[in-house]
Amino acid sequence: MPGSDGKPVIEIRGLQKVFAHGDTEVAALENIDIDIHQGEFVCLMGPSGSGKSTLLHLIAGLDNPTGGQCRVLGQELSDMSERDLSRWRNEHIGFIFQSFNLIPVLTAYENVEMPLLLTGLSRKERGEHIEAALGIVGLSDRLTHYPRQLSGGQEQRVAIARALVADPDLVLADEPTGDLDAKSAEEVLTILRKLNQDYGKTIIMVTHDPKASGYATVTRHLDKGQMLPL
């Protein structure tokens, strides 16, 4: 079983993100230092507005920091072009949002297929990946269902399948259980733990739910843009 003692997959030093709001500035993140290692399941907690989503977006290269370094999977993200970042995300990052994750006009199968359309995989190879991913989240019997025909928990599991179908190194989840009832939330958390324990995926999950931290290997707290010490 992968432990938390490997080489860091994420090295963050002095990371800063300031949003300019007209003439006032909001510091969403201030001087963040954190290492995250291969195989860790990090639970990121903190009050609303503390900068959790912002940190996740910077790690995924969806936004640019205003200061500091953010090295992910050995790449300094600020050195990469938009194009390379897109490709890199497609290959290495799986992203799960709180809600409205899926494209309504596509079936579960097709939603999961979306990241693979950018790869050179054949139809058949894609099919194998998709079925495996939907199998892991326990939705092998819902391939042709459209999002509106799925429950919130099932939608979220399809989103997890889409996040892992390209076999990413890093799974980022922003309040994946925020909109779910307790039972569905538990299913989703169980799947994430399985991904971490059985498939060795490094996971960073933002959550407000104290129970969720029980599934993680590490819990970190953000407050007013600062990372609290362990």
Binding site: A60, L62, E82, R83, S86, R87, W88, R89, N90, E91, I93, G94, F95, F97, F100, N101, I103, M114, P115, L118, R162, A163, A166
Partner: peptide
Amino acid sequence: REVAILRAIGYPRG
């Protein structure tokens, strides 16, 4: 928002 999701899962601008 869907466009943003596509971008987040690695769809380049092009």
